[in-house]
Design a binder for these strands. Structure first.
Lengths: 142, 142
DNA sequence: GCTAGTGTTATAGTTAGCTATAACAGGAGA
DNA sequence: TCTCCTGTTATAGCTAACTATAACACTAGC
């Protein structure tokens, strides 16, 4: 896993999101223990309290259960719960904003999504250096 | 404009982003004055210093020039600069994350494009309750 | 010069997020 | 019991973001 943080969002929420991603991706399965608070803290060079805070988000969401002295464990049904909840959240809170940005920038949502669905790898980092005649010409003339 | 703030990001950056959006959308044109710091502050019920901070981001980016006693004005070339810079930023910093999320949630291009192009409203809140056989079944069996 | 509109700076207080350090509490295995 | 692993709480300090309030600096129009 990546050891770097996005400065746009608090670390504890990013931690929460990473665990969620691991559950959705099947890296962590129901019944599994999360990596321990202390381990994560040292490995990511972050304060244990910050990790705990991230994990407690998951507890509050009913995804994870904490057993003192043992660890934090993924609840049964967590994946299904997540799949629904995160979809909802993405579609109502994130996608509209992203979609608006795409349009604003004169990018084509279809092309971007193509790259999403067809490839396993997200090698979408390169926006094709040839930018002499870009597709936003429709907007250019305001 | 909306009078509400996204709690995930500082207000001053959201202000900056809104101005950028207005420039890209052609609502504000090069040479135009931005709405005054004080006006924005009262209208959005935000501290003038916060607005100023947002505006000064734009100054630092070379998009806007400030003339004391007169106002803040959009520089020539701002739109072009923005189109390139924001695209770059979006494609390298934002889209990869979003794309990964889309895959993870097993969302499909059609669902996403529907709400974007056909409807003005984002009534996309319902991800289709029929989830007996979802498209992420390829992942379901890990 | 006065007034009303601009941007800008100064002071000071609150909150959220993160940090370091330490101690407390419980389970598992030698 | 002792040791080592868990989660948890307590103290205290730092910074960024935001706030309120006030004053300063400049421009344009009367």
């Amino acid at each position: 896993m990546d050891r770097e943080w996005n400065e746009n969002q608090p670390i504890y929420r990013q931690l929460r999101d990473r665990v969620v991603a691991m559950i959705l991706d099947g890296v962590l399965r129901e019944g599994d223990a999360l990596p321990s608070v202390r381990n994560v803290a040292t490995e990511y060079r972050v304060n244990p309290l910050t990790v705990l805070k991230g994990y407690q988000q998951l507890v509050e969401e009913g995804l994870v259960e904490s057993r003192r002295g043992l660890g934090m464990f993924i609840n049964a049904g967590a994946r299904k719960l997540l799949l629904e909840g995160e979809r909802q959240k993405f579609l109502t809170e994130e996608w509209p904003r992203v979609s608006a940005t795409i349009q604003r920038l004169g990018l084509r949502a279809e092309e971007l999504l193509d790259g999403t669905n067809n490839r396993k790898q997200a090698d979408s980092a390169k926006p094709k250096p040839k930018e002499s005649k870009t597709p936003e010409s429709s907007k250019e003339d305001r």
